Computed example of a mutant assay.
Amino acid sequence: WLIESLLAPEDALRARAGEIARAAAARDPAEPWGQLVARLEEPGAWAVFDSDGRLLFDSSGSPVAPAPRERPFEILRDAASGRRAAVASAAFESPGGRGTVQLLAPLPDTDGAVLRLRCAIVLAALLAFALGGALSWLAARWTMGVLGALAHAVRRMAGGNEALRARSARSDELGELGRAVDELAESLSAALRELRDERDLLSDVLETLQEGVLVLGSQGRIERVNPALREMLLLPPEVHGRLPLEVLRSSDLQELLVRARRAPSSAELELPGIKPRRVLARAAALGTRQGGLLVTFVDITNVRHLETLRRDFVANVSHELRTPL
């Protein structure tokens, strides 16, 4: 329709139809229509209809539009021949009555042009689709390459390389992502340094404590023992993950641990083993770990031994004083 509209000279055709209509209005009713045709010298086919729609004259013998058209301009196809024509209509009024003039201008064959245009559109669409797919594939490969390098750097950071950074110089979204990863890595490195400092400080405190320290996890198994407790009780090297009762065979200690889960408790215990000791133990739940316990041991073996010696000495002196002879 668009091609046919471009090919059809609508304004010129309607103007020529108006001229024929004016000539038909001024025609003498006795004048044959053929003389009007010769006078007008109109090369195109035109037809005249009366007010009732009857064909009065047809210059071609086979009109494309066998009836008067309501619109002043249309593009029609002859059902028999398949011809396309632009039809311009103009009304007139003569002494013989009212009528309508229709001027028909055959159009070039547009079917081939339409077919070629459709083929061109389909081919262009296929080329655009292929080009878009190729560009998308290249863009995806390029993006995946950048993301792959960034992912590799992140994996190396996660593996312990805290000094590695993406250091992206790009100004697009991928560059923003790289810089965000670098900022995250800086924050994590700072947090890890603080955690290591706190861990080292805690280790130093536990190493220098004279009292024995035993840390139990949420499952009641040993997680940490300081050197003072190892030396105090001559504990074996591998105690991590074992139950306290397996290492320190004391039912009194087990009862103390049970009480400590409800409230902080302390007790004086006699711990058997290679080096039996008498200790003052205090156990309390760890506030930051659900179910964990912290147990401290103060060796009072020598104190109790001195107290025994003192009692024996006082008893002996008292006995000697009572029985001097």
Rank of each mutant, 00 (worst) to 15 (best):
residue 193 R to K: 09
residue 71 R to A: 15
residue 154 V to Q: 11
residue 172 D to Q: 01
residue 143 T to D: 13
residue 147 L to R: 14
residue 225 V to P: 01
residue 244 P to V: 07
residue 147 L to K: 02
residue 19 E to I: 08
residue 229 L to A: 00
residue 102 Q to G: 11
residue 213 V to H: 00
residue 160 G to F: 07
residue 56 L to H: 02
residue 126 L to N: 02
residue 178 G to Y: 02
residue 38 A to Y: 05
residue 145 G to E: 12
residue 274 I to M: 08
residue 40 L to C: 05
residue 167 R to Y: 13
residue 131 L to A: 15
residue 150 L to A: 14
residue 108 P to C: 00
residue 49 F to I: 15
residue 13 L to Q: 15
residue 325 L to V: 05
residue 200 D to N: 11
residue 312 D to L: 03
residue 263 A to Y: 06
residue 25 A to I: 03
residue 85 A to M: 08
residue 14 R to E: 14
residue 15 A to R: 14
residue 117 L to Y: 00
residue 38 A to C: 01
residue 297 F to Q: 00
residue 42 E to I: 09
residue 175 G to F: 05
residue 314 V to Q: 12
residue 58 D to Q: 07
residue 130 A to R: 02
residue 35 Q to E: 14
residue 113 A to G: 01
residue 93 E to N: 04
residue 79 A to H: 13
residue 145 G to K: 04
residue 72 P to R: 11
residue 11 D to G: 13
residue 10 E to L: 06
residue 114 V to G: 01
residue 183 E to N: 06
residue 176 E to F: 11
residue 255 E to D: 11
residue 231 E to R: 14
residue 257 L to Y: 06
residue 202 L to Y: 04
residue 110 T to N: 08
residue 35 Q to A: 15
residue 52 D to V: 06
residue 200 D to Q: 09
residue 300 I to H: 02
residue 171 S to H: 10
residue 140 A to D: 07
residue 114 V to H: 06
residue 186 E to Y: 11
residue 125 A to F: 08
residue 195 L to T: 09
residue 18 G to S: 09
residue 169 A to I: 11
residue 43 P to E: 12
residue 28 D to K: 14
residue 224 R to Y: 02
residue 266 S to L: 10
residue 280 L to A: 04
residue 190 A to E: 08
residue 117 L to M: 07
residue 325 L to W: 10
residue 230 R to K: 04
residue 7 L to D: 06
residue 156 R to F: 11
residue 298 V to C: 07
residue 61 G to V: 14
residue 14 R to L: 11
residue 115 L to S: 12
residue 72 P to H: 10
residue 13 L to N: 12
residue 163 A to T: 13
residue 188 L to P: 01
residue 220 G to D: 10
residue 188 L to N: 01
residue 137 W to I: 10
residue 238 E to M: 05
residue 114 V to R: 14
residue 172 D to E: 01
residue 162 E to P: 01
residue 69 R to N: 15
residue 264 P to C: 05
residue 99 G to T: 08
residue 293 L to H: 04
residue 168 S to Y: 06
residue 208 T to Q: 15
residue 47 A to R: 13
residue 289 R to C: 04
residue 46 W to P: 12
residue 65 A to W: 10
residue 247 V to Y: 00
residue 31 E to F: 09
residue 5 S to P: 00
residue 156 R to H: 15
residue 59 S to K: 05
residue 170 R to M: 02
residue 94 S to H: 14
residue 177 L to C: 03
residue 300 I to R: 01
